[in-house]
Design a protein around this nucleic acid. Structure first.
Lengths: 119, 119
DNA sequence: CTAACCCATGCCGTACAAAGAGCGTGAAAT
DNA sequence: ATTTCACGCTCTTTGTACGGCATGGGTTAG
């Protein structure tokens, strides 16, 4: 992996960074962690929470439901749970999208080849 | 006005009847009255609450939002304020869209994971 | 030496329930 | 045929348990 890519893509966020991003207290994030099993980030050797962008998205969803749409915590939990059981359908969609991706990659090659031929 | 129409037209329920119908305490209905201006029934000379079928339907909507969907009272209030043509359908659409949003967020994660795995 | 950790406790509002009092109907007593 | 009174339902006011975090103590790593 080239130097530039390593620099640009930041692997993990600290709890303080996530808290600042949403303008909430770290204690809120820790509390929600006890309430939502979907929000359990990796931890460092020391024990510090390591939030991936996906974790942040999970937090954003919870934040949206609880703080913006006015759900109780149990209500938000129910909605998050409902997303799980559709996993089979998700996999099907993923496979479809992977085929589409393969098609686009092939298409790109051909387009590039055509461009070169055209000079 | 003929007798029959009078009978049909003015059928009121007492707070006890409404409470029994939803299996809740009358105190809950009175409390929600202080929280939702949409739930302000007529009162008799004595001061007793007189619930029309329309009032009962209003209560049913609030009950659905708060007790079944898990909204906070302010959250339910916000939805009630948006008095559109088909409130019930609107709620269903919102539910559907939230599910779709959750699905897409989850899908994005998995697609990213698949993308990395595929190189 | 700041920022994170965990844990316990503190705390304030939300969301009701209970308490206490009044009215109206109906059965019993006058 | 009134009076009584008790019972059930209602009313308003006041109390309270829990939800939803915040704060402080004691530590530890970067």
């Amino acid at each position: 992996m080239p130097y530039k890519e390593r620099e640009i893509e930041k692997q993990y966020f600290t709890i303080g960074e996530v808290a600042a991003q949403f303008n909430v207290a770290p204690s809120l994030i820790r509390f929600w962690e006890t309430e939502f099993e979907e929000l359990r980030p990796r931890k460092s050797k020391k024990g510090n929470r390591l939030y991936t962008p996906a974790d942040v998205e999970t937090f954003r969803t919870i934040y949206h439901l609880v703080k913006e749409r006015g759900y109780t915590i149990p209500g938000a939990r129910d909605i998050l749970k409902q997303r799980g059981p559709q996993l089979k359908e998700k996999i099907d969609v993923i496979q479809s999208l992977e085929k589409v991706r393969g098609f686009l990659v092939q298409l790109k090659k051909e387009v590039e080849a055509a461009g070169k031929a055209a000079g």
